[in-house]
Design a protein around this nucleic acid. Structure first.
Lengths: 241, 241
DNA sequence: GATTCCCGAACGAACGTTCGAACGAGGGCC
DNA sequence: GGCCCTCGTTCGAACGTTCGTTCGGGAATC
């Protein structure tokens, strides 16, 4: 999982990797347009002009971050899908894979989710291409589920994009030290997407075809946590009370 | 529905309204940081310095747009909920109301969805406050559904934010002239959120407790449309082939 | 001695905002 | 009517700052 990306050998590769990491952080915090190359210079310790030895422009830097992230997530998904044939299980893998990458690379994920429109002419098309491959794969997965007679006749485009909405929106509210991790998050979203929030209408009293684990605490806790998250001023990164 | 906001009387109020509308458009197209007051000057026909007669700063302009949008959506929701007691129906109203506003004010919706973090100190808190009220209302609606024994024991915070994810993500892919309008969109999302994508496991052959209307066309159409949307270069506003 | 790495200084452009002067409509006063 | 003064409105020009990027020249490495 962490050895998927070839470790940088040469020293200059390491420095480029540092730049990419810090750039993802700076872009995530201030937005692509709001972040300056001087911010990045400060964050990396490399002089402003020194950055241009590794990167040809700010645009290319964003392009590189987005391409790396998408390539990785797509590649990992394809490898996890290999050999699995059950359509429902394949959807579960898609969700789990997306959230795994999301929560292990929150900065990169925010950048390629939130700054999808910031790229211009030459770079834009390339990112759009890999993004399309990803969405088309998801669409195919959903159609296979329908074709197997296991999914409702919902418009596949809307259903799939709604699913991506659930997942891609997470970066706006997820706090790693107080919110569920990838496993539980994937369980909730999978349950919602596949079976919905309602209990079966017939046997409304006797539920529990689902795991239903550790969710008795629908007390005031979530309430207070949500309120804090929505209000959260920009500074407080973690260290929750 | 359209007469909810008092029509501007005085001439200068009309001009302020024009500025707010165009600013929403400019911010939606270029992002808050990426848009300049000179862009807005060009878009309104008002001179750069002239804008500052109506607006005290760029930040205050964004603040005003976001507050107006959120006030309107929340106010309309509360009025639509009045008198309705069935928990499931109240959730349906929330979804329908959100999407109605979304699709009638796509620019404003994108601005307050995408630029939620662009505001700073004095303005930030106020927007956070009204946003919190909205999220807390949604959370209450979901808890009521659970308390009535009609919803699964999912973590309410995650479930509600997943629902908002489905809806708020729409601005990234929805094209008004080729995608479903609010009614159908609300139906799909409501169906997903409440009942999920899967058909009931027992009677997998005989489906159709849902309307299932006009979804026989799971042909290559959606596929092609999705591909186009994901790839869409910045220019092509409409006029789809 | 060539190549890679790195930086201080500067470039021109664009940014948000301010300033002072002009304009036009309106009202009281002669 | 003619006059002045006011007030809401508008603008060109400029302020100081920050932006992305470039350039020329040094150090370090092979």
């Amino acid at each position: 999982m962490s050895a998927a990306r070839p470790l940088p050998q040469r020293k200059s590769d390491q420095k480029l990797q540092l730049i990419l990491e810090r750039a993802a952080g700076v872009f995530a915090r201030k937005g692509f347009e709001g972040a300056s190359m001087r911010d990045l210079s400060r964050s990396t310790g490399i002089s402003l002009s020194g950055l241009y030895h590794y990167v040809s422009s700010k645009q290319q830097l964003l392009h590189r971050i987005q391409m790396d992230a998408f390539s990785q997530i797509l590649e990992q998904l394809e490898s996890r899908l290999a050999g699995v044939t059950d359509p429902e299980e394949r959807i579960r893998i898609l969700i789990r894979n997306h959230l795994d990458y999301f929560l292990t690379h929150p900065l990169e994920m925010k950048v390629f989710t939130h700054e999808a429109d910031a790229l211009v002419a030459p770079y834009r098309g390339e990112v759009a291409g890999i993004k399309r491959r990803y969405y088309e794969l998801a669409l195919k997965l959903f159609r296979d589920l329908q074709r197997a007679g296991r999914a409702r006749a919902l418009a596949p485009r809307v259903a799939v994009l709604a699913l991506f909405g659930m997942m891609n929106w997470i970066y706006t509210w997820h706090h790693p030290d107080s919110d569920p991790q990838a496993r539980e998050l994937a369980e909730v979203i999978t349950a919602l997407f596949l079976r919905g929030a309602l209990t079966a209408p017939g046997r409304s009293g006797a539920l529990a075809p689902e795991p239903a684990h550790k969710n008795g605490r629908s007390s005031g806790r979530d309430h207070a946590r949500l309120a804090r998250d929505i209000t959260h001023e920009r500074k407080h990164v973690h260290g929750h009370a």
